[in-house]
């Protein structure tokens, strides 16, 4: 299906909320999906798979803890929808140590353990680079991604790009001149194509944010009669 980025962002945001995330986090999730779709990567599809496989209805187990210089979820797999915003906050602060981890400094690498759908992290990191004036490198398995304000650089094994899980994701802030890229996917600033099944899945999560209306609530809530002709 051909859709506008705006439509995808808004529906992804509502889908994340519908799956249980609070609005503040869901807003970031919508933007991350939009950013990935704008570089023609399957952000919406990854979000759908994540929401189907990782329970987001309880925030507690998903919260990040810092241990021995690494980030990990309180329990179970870490969610990119929780980790991504924190990486963006640190990038905006100019240091991956900004979250108070004394063992990580600007030039060090931040490691995150056991994270689901790591590609989604690139959406948060990419959106952050427009503001933080630094580029962000993400590395897992055989994949290296360079998130920058104009798009996404890639090198490595394409098959591992949309991995469902990685045991270790590494994050590093870079100066633009430190980057060498083999493949570059530019931000297209346009529309995107989604599989019908993904779009319907997003919409059904989004549906969970809507309130069923009755004739009475329709009258009271919108404040008008059903028919008004003059």
């Amino acid at each position: 299906m051909h859709l506008s980025l705006n439509q995808v962002e808004h529906t992804a945001r509502k889908a994340a909320r519908g799956a249980g995330l609070l609005w503040g986090l869901a807003e970031d999730a919508g933007r991350a999906v939009r950013w990935l779709e704008a570089v023609d990567l399957p952000g919406a599809s990854q979000l759908v798979s994540l929401l189907q496989k990782v329970d987001h209805s309880q925030l507690g187990p998903l919260k990040i803890i810092q241990q021995n210089g690494r980030w990990k979820a309180q329990s179970g797999k870490a969610s990119p929808l929780i980790v991504g915003p924190s990486i963006a906050d640190c990038a905006n602060a100019g240091s991956l140590g900004a979250a108070g981890n004394q063992e990580i400094y600007d030039d060090r690498i931040l490691a995150i353990e056991n994270i689901a759908f790591p590609l989604l992290i690139a959406g948060f990191a990419g959106a952050a680079t427009t503001q933080c004036e630094r580029w962000i490198r993400l590395t897992w398995d055989q994949v290296k991604l360079y998130c920058c304000p104009d798009g996404l650089g890639f090198s490595g094994n394409r098959k591992e790009l949309d991995a469902e899980f990685t045991g270790k994701l590494e994050v590093q802030l870079l100066q633009p001149d430190e980057v060498v890229m083999h493949v570059f996917w530019p931000l297209s600033h346009d529309s995107c194509s989604l599989l019908k099944a993904d779009w319907e899945a997003l919409e059904s999560y989004a549906q969970l944010t809507y309130v069923k209306s009755s004739a009475a609530s329709r009258m009271a809530g919108a404040g008008a009669g059903l028919n008004d002709n003059d």
Binding site: G24, L25, L59, Q66, S86, A99, G100
Partner: peptide
């Protein structure tokens, strides 16, 4: 003197208000 990055890691529920 905790940073917002650290605070929001512990309390992501306040992310919308912080932004």
């Amino acid at each position: 003197n905790d940073s917002m990055a650290r605070f929001l890691m512990s309390y992501p529920e306040h992310r919308g208000a912080a932004r």
